[in-house]
């Protein structure tokens, strides 16, 4: 589904290389986790895949089902089925959470040639999904993420994912800042979406989340490259020993 080949990325305004040859293939139905030290380029990878400004791809490719992601506008990537749960969800004063969600859902439906969801139908679906994530009606009425706690913002990301039903979901540290119960809710949200036609790339620092969302493959990223790939046991190893040994062995 997602095919990243030799991806090199630098900052647009500075001569700073951040990704130095990322290779990654995520197949449909799979869950991959990426771990790695702070600053190793995990968020940058997720931003570049979703089309954020400020980065220049100097080499390599990234494809979603064979389509060149890097040539598409962010909204077209979303319409193609890509979704990023942000490490730092953005506050948008003045735009109601419900309005935002509905606009997004209908924009994607439109771009796929589907009819817009009626207000009633939308409300019903959103209420049901919000309830499962313990997001109350009041949060839906407030402006997007404004005044939300850290954990509320993360749950709101998962709600968006649940509503948009993307095929390629990237979760950037969605577990950070979540209490144990919220972590369980988020994991349930992810697991509910797991199916043969959908794939996940879960960026995390902690083994904990991976107890709930069992990954098929675990990658270790360091200094802009994936330096090691393995099974779930790799996450255990990181949890126990940190990155020192892995980094030493990678050179």
């Amino acid at each position: 589904m997602l095919n990243i080949n030799n991806l090199h990325v630098k900052l647009e305004t500075e001569d700073k290389q951040i990704l130095r040859g990322v290779n990654l293939v995520v197949g449909a139905g799979e869950v991959h986790a990426i771990m790695g030290p702070n600053g190793s380029g995990k968020s940058t990878l997720s931003y570049v895949l979703s089309g954020k400004d400020g980065y220049t791809v100097t080499d390599g490719t990234a494809k979603l089902d064979g389509a060149d992601l890097l040539a598409m506008e962010p909204e077209d990537r979303a319409a193609a089925g890509l979704f990023l749960a942000f490490q730092y969800p953005v506050e948008i004063p003045g735009v109601g959470n419900m309005t935002f969600l509905r606009t997004a859902v209908n924009a994607q439906r439109k771009s796929r040639g589907q009819a817009e969801m009626s207000a009633g139908e939308f409300l019903k679906v959103v209420r049901e999904k919000a309830k499962r994530l313990s997001i109350d009606a009041d949060m839906m009425k407030r402006p997007v993420n404004v005044g939300f706690s850290g954990g509320e913002k993360k749950r709101n990301e998962i709600l968006q994912m649940a509503m948009l039903e993307p095929r390629m979901c990237i979760l950037d540290e969605t577990d950070s800042g979540l209490d144990v119960d919220a972590m369980k809710l988020v994991a349930d949200g992810v697991n509910a979406l797991r199916d043969a036609g959908r794939a996940f790339l879960v960026i995390t620092h902690y083994q904990r989340l991976l107890d709930h969302i069992r990954p098929d493959v675990v990658h270790i990223m360091a200094a802009g490259r994936i330096i090691k790939t393995g099974g779930p046991e790799l996450a255990m190893e990181v949890e126990k020993n940190g990155y020192a040994d892995l980094l030493a062995g990678a050179v």
Binding site: S50, G51, K52, D53, E73, P74, E75, R77, A78, A79, F83, L84, F86, P89, V90, E91, I92, F100, T103, A104, A107, Q108, S111, V144, Q160, L164
Partner: peptide, 12 residues
């Protein structure tokens, strides 16, 4: 904010 909206599929 603009990128956030677009990343959810809202056209520019």
């Amino acid at each position: 904010a603009l990128f956030y909206l677009r990343s959810r599929g809202v056209p520019l």
